[in-house]
Design a protein around this nucleic acid. Structure first.
Lengths: 210, 210
DNA sequence: GCCCCCATCATCCGATCGGATGATGGGGGC
DNA sequence: GCCCCCATCATCCGATCGGATGATGGGGGC
């Protein structure tokens, strides 16, 4: 009995990568490449039209970042699974991509068989993660800090890290001291700390500062 | 008119490196290699006996670190110049070596001519620095922070970075809160900051924490 | 239209901090 | 023997912080 092939959309801004992936999957049994896109916006449009089972997506692309595209895709097309293929597993977009709805996260230099397995798993709705990403997710869950400081919060934390007292932070940002304190309270809650020194340390540890 | 040759002592724990340097200087006019040593202690003893003009010294050696040997050498034998030859210019011992009395600091992969020039300069009492080291020294001078926090100060700063209030730091270390504050005051002075948040940030920036 | 998040602001108050000042004992270098 | 640095401690006090509580307007998602 022959299963229907898993249909694919390949999204990457590098023609060489697109061609390479296309070739790998076209020459393997059980897969059908429906199309390619070079940026997130095109990908969303193409996915709506072609309705692929799995979208293989690069994260770093000019004109339409991958994370936004993933969010759009999984909202408009919930049946379609997004498998992120990236060069580095230390990418700061890792967690946001998964939060945006990516089903899996693989390194581009994975062997062919691993790619096939991952795509089949993704098509079946299963989650596929590289070990490094898995580990990071675990630690993320363990310290359930929302981590995502807003731009304003980061701005304030950066000033605090310079030793700026609240009153001066307020003056610099043209807001009241009460607002500064309010932001700091939110920062402490998100980073799960109790004072500015620990907030700065945690921010450095997580790459928010420095 | 023939100048008397510049006499050398070569100190490195790798026989291959010693042999290589020995060969380079023995085959060049104007230099005479008086001896070799494989560690700092032997180097100090040999230098006292042979009285070389210049000691070429590796920093990283088992049994008698280079920095201590430099300190001993320049104390006992002030006429003798120490030229540090190292593999990496990012070595954390760079600054200590110079503080200990090294006249110059060169990378091992410097071309032969540069070695000759450097040794002649060192023999004449001039300072020779690779550009990277020079830059680091400049930045060191610009921010005259003594940077060298004591072990106790680092211990306290580490606790502060975790958000520990002074009173708890005191309890953890079995000292009074007054002492904690005293240490913190010293830390602030050394790092040139005014509060714990900035101290933590600066410590991260300089690699003292994190 | 409702809800949530973000940025903004206000007031109150106990807790904590940081600066100033001064002091002691021990260890290492000159 | 003297000097300097380090670690230790004490007291005083104004400045700053952080927690609690409550409120408003605007933007985006459902």
């Amino acid at each position: 009995m022959t299963e229907p092939p898993i249909t694919l959309l390949i999204v990457d801004d590098h023609p060489v990568v697109r061609h390479g992936l296309h070739g790998i999957f076209a020459s393997a049994a059980g897969f059908e490449v429906l199309g390619e896109a070079a940026d997130g916006v095109t990908a969303v449009a193409l996915a709506a039209r072609l309705d692929p089972d799995v979208v293989l997506m690069d994260l770093r692309m000019p004109g339409g970042g991958g994370v936004e595209a993933i969010r759009d895709l999984s909202r408009r097309n919930p049946r379609c699974k997004v498998l992120v293929l990236t060069t580095y597993d230390t990418d700061s977009d890792t967690i946001p991509a998964i939060e945006a709805g990516a089903t899996g996260y693989l390194l581009k230099d994975a062997p062919r068989d691993e790619l096939f397995t991952a795509v089949r798993a993704a098509a079946a709705g299963r989650t596929v993660l590289s070990p490094a990403i898995a580990a990071r997710l675990v630690s993320r869950v363990r310290s359930p800090a929302t981590t995502t400081l807003t731009a304003r919060e980061r701005e304030i934390l950066r000033l605090v890290a310079k030793g700026t007292p609240n009153r001066e932070v307020a003056a610099i940002l043209f807001i009241s001291e009460a607002t500064v304190k309010s932001h700091l309270t939110h920062i402490y809650a998100k980073l799960n700390v109790n004072d500015r020194a620990a907030a700065v340390a945690t921010a450095y540890d997580r790459g928010i500062l420095g």
